[in-house]
Design a protein around this nucleic acid. Sequence first.
DNA 1: GCATATAGTATCAAAAAAGATACTGTAACC
DNA 2: GGTTACAGTATCTTTTTTGATACTATATGC
Lengths: 116, 116
Amino acid sequence: MVTTSEAEALEKHPELADLCPMPDIAKLIGGKWKLIILQILIFKGTKRFNELRRMIPGVTQTMLTNQLRALEADGLVTRKIYAEVPPKVEYTATQRALDLEEMFHAMHNWWMRADG
Amino acid sequence: MVTTSEAEALEKHPELADLCPMPDIAKLIGGKWKLIILQILIFKGTKRFNELRRMIPGVTQTMLTNQLRALEADGLVTRKIYAEVPPKVEYTATQRALDLEEMFHAMHNWWMRADG
DNA sequence: GCATATAGTATCAAAAAAGATACTGTAACC
DNA sequence: GGTTACAGTATCTTTTTTGATACTATATGC
């Protein structure tokens, strides 16, 4: 299959240079669960693991752990472990995640508009 | 696996009601290619099929067709066929897609910020 | 003494998404 | 008369993502 490389695309279409890289953004906030998790942590504040689990319909323990770990690795979420039994772990949106508020508002407006 | 249903989540956490449904939004603009396609059609205007193909690094003909068809079905893109040989087909962002501009700007700002 | 809640991990299986490949028809160009 | 460009379709395979299941440890309540 003949596909275009990044370099070719930019050479032939220099005007593409001012578009931001969607694949990179998708790596951070793409997938089935990340936007839901971020939305809750950003707008509803810090949550515990099982709290999130109960707030997100259909998410499994495995996926929630995976996604939270990925978000943590990308600096969008912090994880605070309390030395208690039974365990207590809190997840909080970082400033970088809070900066996504504008995007979430835009999405919300777009969804609510529902005219087009 | 015990997961929460939509109804349970809302009953236990009524404050979730004001969050917009990310899964529904993801159906429209999620996946590997849709955001790139929309970004180009919204900010760079109408494009022909092979033009898009050359502008999007790594996309295959198959995927580009699929995604454009899905976007068309969801009312985000219109398809105009010219009765010429060789074939000429133009893709244009609808108003509903143009309304996503705000979201793209927010993403762009977020990406450019790159501090947190 | 048994069940429950907590926050996980490890392993395996299924489903969804993406990709490769081969094919179509016709006009223009060399 | 062979090659290229155009905009696809059909089929199959691979890869990625997501999900299911069983398991861990320990304090508290009944």
